[in-house]
């Protein structure tokens, strides 16, 4: 297995308040292809910040982030948008679907941005929706779906473009236990069948139990890194 993400000596300081806040304080982390990793820790420990930086949504104050051997820490905003489109799938805590598009169109959307042809887009989208068990909801709008179903669409969308890895920021935070169980099963299946690399930030014990690797953060520092 090769390293998909390599974070070296990552520091992040938020200076918007009077007292600067050190969110990350020298994080070193390497995620291998096909891993199913949970980043855990108490609120404010820097989980989301770490995910944002390795996802190219934010810049570190210091340090490097190599994704597929490309340093994204110094990329410009426009380059990062392109990079994210080609390499990273996102699942957010709040349901992050485009409300005016149907389930199928939401899954297709990233492939559309990647300029894939319509037939290919529809085929891949339907395959993923079938995998997620929501093919019958293809023509429904997000508002007509339950929270769990919406998150499954979000996972399908994140997988649609076959990214190098998927970042999920507390994906089960708003779900009931049954939906959480379903979503985790689907993600584990995708991890296994499509060799998709998943990185979660989570508080959720059920996610932690499913994870194959658990990275624990505290005060912006990794205090443990356990592989099951």
């Amino acid at each position: 297995m090769s390293g998909v993400i390599k974070a070296e000596n990552l520091h992040k300081v938020y200076s918007e308040t009077k007292i600067p806040v050190k969110a990350l304080n020298g994080v070193n982390l390497e995620i291998m292809e096909g891993e199913f990793t949970a980043i855990v820790g108490p609120s404010g420990c820097g989980k989301t910040t770490l995910l944002n930086i390795i996802g190219g949504l934010d810049h570190p104050t210091m340090g490097n982030v190599l994704v597929a051997n490309e340093d994204i820490a110094n990329m410009k905003d426009g380059e990062l948008i392109d990079f994210r489109l080609k390499n990273i799938g996102f699942v957010f805590q709040a349901y992050n679907l485009i409300p005016v598009l149907t389930t199928l169109e939401n899954v297709e959307f990233i492939m559309l941005l990647q300029k894939q042809d319509k037939t290919q887009r529809e085929k891949r989208s339907m395959e993923l929706l079938e995998e997620m068990g929501i093919a019958d909801k293809a023509n429904m709008r997000p508002s007509e779906l339950s929270g769990g179903q919406q998150q499954r669409v979000a996972v399908a969308r994140a997988l649609a473009s076959k990214p190098k890895f998927i970042l999920a920021d507390e994906p089960t935070a708003n779900l009931d236990s049954k939906s959480t169980e379903n979503l985790l099963d689907i993600m584990a299946k995708m991890n296994k069948e499509e060799n998709a690399t998943f990185v979660f930030s989570t508080h959720d014990q059920r996610v932690i139990e499913k994870a194959k690797r658990i990275v624990t953060l505290e005060d912006g520092v990794i205090i443990s890194d356990v592989k099951k």
Partner: peptide, 16 residues
């Protein structure tokens, strides 16, 4: 704003 943020996160260019 949230939606714009999400769209940009997943790779939609500003100009689009």
């Amino acid at each position: 704003m949230y939606e714009f943020g999400v769209m940009m996160s997943i790779g939609m260019k500003r100009v689009k």
